[in-house]
Design a protein around this nucleic acid. Structure first.
Length: 636
DNA sequence: AACCTGGTTATTTTT
DNA sequence: TAACCAGGTT
């Protein structure tokens, strides 16, 4: 018996019970907003364990590490040996650490994030002497990502008319990744799919190991994830997916709503269970959200209801401009806090990051503590990426992008010209980067520069020889005088130094928790983790975030601001119906975050791209029934 | 090699 | 507005 407690199925509704008790075969749980879907997944795992399934036979996939952690914590409270709960990407990484050698990579491969990937792609353009046209780089990166999500390799474009150019760049990009012993985020899905498809022994092994697969947020899976799923379950079909097509908001990132809408065709004999009771929001909020989303086409019909009573109507507030809007919200929030409401039960939601500025100004003025969720993450900070690049190089000196990033940081006299010479030399000699670093004698550089390069390699080697990650970092800091370099900018020094210290603290903590893992795993975890777990144990603060970031969360009080045409729906999402519908889903997601109080705001003028522009209120207001709203009118 | 400047561009971003 | 980058200057 793997369970600590057998307290199951209490206070569950019949649909939830049905889902939890499901054993064999494919099941789709259509879980409306706030219908207790996480609980269903957790309890279903518990039920499997209780019935004698071994934890190692279960694989649960979530979309974020945060969600995975949350689920792990909840399962740990009922079961001492939790099953594997990861994201698709972490699962892919884990799988590749064991089998990527079959594809000619070393197991110490680096994982390139978006910034790394951009740099690499820029290099590829340079390889063809192509000048970086304005939006072309971005378009190409997107095209490569789309191709990979569709499981298409360069070769698939070779004979496509009009794709010569793309074929070359894509091919070059893949080659450069391999030279650097690196893969990108998309490869974390794509490569496992190919391996499982081509190596039947691998597939058999993994299918024998994981007998029960559970996938959360299935509406936001892309084609590669879908293919991976099929490969994982095709022998036993024990697939349990949970999702809500009305909350699919990542199609611009390759997610295909078709995966969930077509589930019954993809998996014959699939059972479908709808969770329609919402435990989160009061009636006015929920009914208005339902009315809004009903305007989308091709939906699974769903009637989300709440037993919580009508509650308060949704407040609708027009303002002159974003300053007035922000001021009102800040004062409203301040008033609520004065009456004893916990600030962390309040969220301010917006469509674009730029909108946070006016809100921050107003909150600052009212002295309200706030925290922005998302934004520039800890691991994207310059100093953190610098140090992680050094760390990556201690593991894999072929990591070209890491090398490029820090070869002259701090300045050591190896600037652009010298760097170009090194690249040229590498091209000519066909030697791996690592070899060149180890023997600089034949490089066409000044002896001073060679000396600096040798020093650089020495730092990597000596840091590489230290077992402790934290001590590796300390060594790098010391040998490169990195903190002195940070001191050059007095404005940012304090912040950056603190980030460096936080990284070291993180390394120490991680090493204590994972004594048997290495720096490779450490780097992997950091690459795949977006945010630093800093949200815990802090003073209660009001949350600010984009609507996208609010998915999966809930707050007593929500403000959704900037409900204007060209903001929501966003100007770039108005042409195509499916884009417009995704904007509607985005608002739907936002509205359904609110438990008790929801305020929607819009302005007559908004400062946008340098000028004040007249705005029209969002068309989505027309889709919210008056009966659920309390509208304050204002003459302008 | 390092610094400065003027022109360009402008979502969302779980991994 | 402000952030970024390419190209030119020191």
């Amino acid at each position: 018996m793997w369970l600590k407690s057998t307290k199951l199925m209490t206070e569950m509704n019949p649909q939830q019970k049905l889902a939890i008790a499901h054993r064999q075969g494919p099941l789709l749980v259509l879980a409306g907003a706030g219908s207790g879907k996480t609980r269903v997944v957790v309890e279903r795992i518990a039920t499997l364990l209780q019935s004698g399934v071994h934890p190692s036979e279960i694989l649960a996939v979530t979309f974020t590490n945060k969600a995975a952690q949350e689920m792990r914590d909840r399962i740990l409270s009922i079961c001492p040996y939790p099953p594997l709960i990861t994201t698709f990407h972490s699962f892919g990484a884990r799988f590749l650490r064991e089998s990527i050698e079959l594809l000619g990579f070393k197991t110490s491969f680096s994982i390139y994030d978006e910034e790394d990937t951009n740099s690499l792609l820029k290099e590829c353009f340079k390889d063809f002497d192509m000048k970086p046209e304005k939006g072309h780089l971005k378009d190409t990166r997107q095209a490569i990502s789309d191709a990979k999500n569709a499981l298409l390799l360069p070769i698939d474009f070779q004979h496509q008319r009009g794709k010569d150019h793309f074929y070359q760049i894509y091919e070059r990009y893949q080659a450069r990744l391999k030279e650097s012993n690196a893969i990108d985020f998309d490869d974390l899905l794509l490569l496992p799919v190919f391996l499982l498809r081509d190596q039947s022994a691998l597939k058999q092994e993994i299918q024998n190991r994981f007998r029960y697969i559970l996938i959360d947020e299935y509406q936001d899976t892309n084609h590669a994830q879908y293919s991976l799923t099929k490969l994982l379950v095709d022998s036993h079909q024990n697939l349990f997916v949970v999702g809500d097509p009305d909350q699919s908001i990542y199609s611009w990132r390759g997610a295909s709503i078709q995966n969930i809408l077509g589930f019954e065709e993809d998996f014959p004999n699939a059972q479908v269970i709808k969770l329609e009771q919402n435990y989160r929001s009061t009636g006015h909020i929920l009914k208005a959200a339902n009315a809004l989303i009903a305007h989308n086409s091709g939906r699974y019909e769903k009637n989300l209801w709440s037993a919580l009573g009508d509650g308060e109507k949704i407040q609708v507030r027009p303002f002159f401009d974003e300053r007035e809007e922000a001021q009102f919200i800040a004062r409203d929030v301040s008033y609520a806090i004065d009456r004893g409401q916990d600030p962390s039960t309040i969220a301010l939601l917006y469509r674009t990051n730029a909108q946070s500025r006016s809100l921050e100004d107003a909150l600052l003025k009212e002295r309200i503590p706030y925290t922005i969720v998302g934004g520039l993450s800890f691991y994207e900070r310059r100093e953190v990426k610098d140090l992680l690049s050094y760390l990556r190089l201690t593991v894999s000196k072929n990591d070209f992008i890491a090398f490029q990033r820090v070869i002259n940081v701090p300045k050591r006299g190896i600037g652009n010209a010298a760097f170009e010479k090194i690249k040229e030399f590498q091209n000519q000699s066909m030697l791996p980067f690592a070899t060149i670093l180890e023997d600089t004698r034949n490089l066409p550089l000044s002896s001073k520069q060679k000396q600096e390069l040798d020093k650089f390699t020495y730092i990597l080697n000596s840091a590489g020889g230290i077992p402790s990650i934290a001590q590796k970092l300390q060594k790098i800091l010391k040998e490169t005088s990195y903190l002195d370099y940070l001191k050059e900018d007095k404005e940012t020094y304090q912040d950056r130094k603190e980030n460096v210290e936080a990284l070291i603290a993180k390394a120490i903590e991680w090493e204590e928790e994972n004594p048997d893992l290495t720096v490779v795993q450490f780097l992997e975890e950091l690459s795949l983790r977006q945010s630093f777990d800093e949200a815990h144990s802090m003073d209660p603060k009001v949350f600010l975030m984009t609507l996208h970031n609010s998915k999966g969360l809930e707050f007593h009080t929500c403000y959704i601001c900037g409900l204007e045409e060209d903001i929501l729906p966003h100007i770039n999402s108005k042409l195509e119906l499916h884009d417009l519908e995704e904007e509607r889903r985005l608002l739907y997601v936002g509205m359904t975050r609110a438990e008790r109080k929801l305020t929607l705001t819009f302005t007559a003028y908004r400062f946008l791209w340098g000028t004040s522009r007249p705005m029209k209120k969002s068309r989505f207001f027309e889709e919210l029934p008056f009966g659920h709203l309390e509208i304050k009118k204002r003459p302008f």
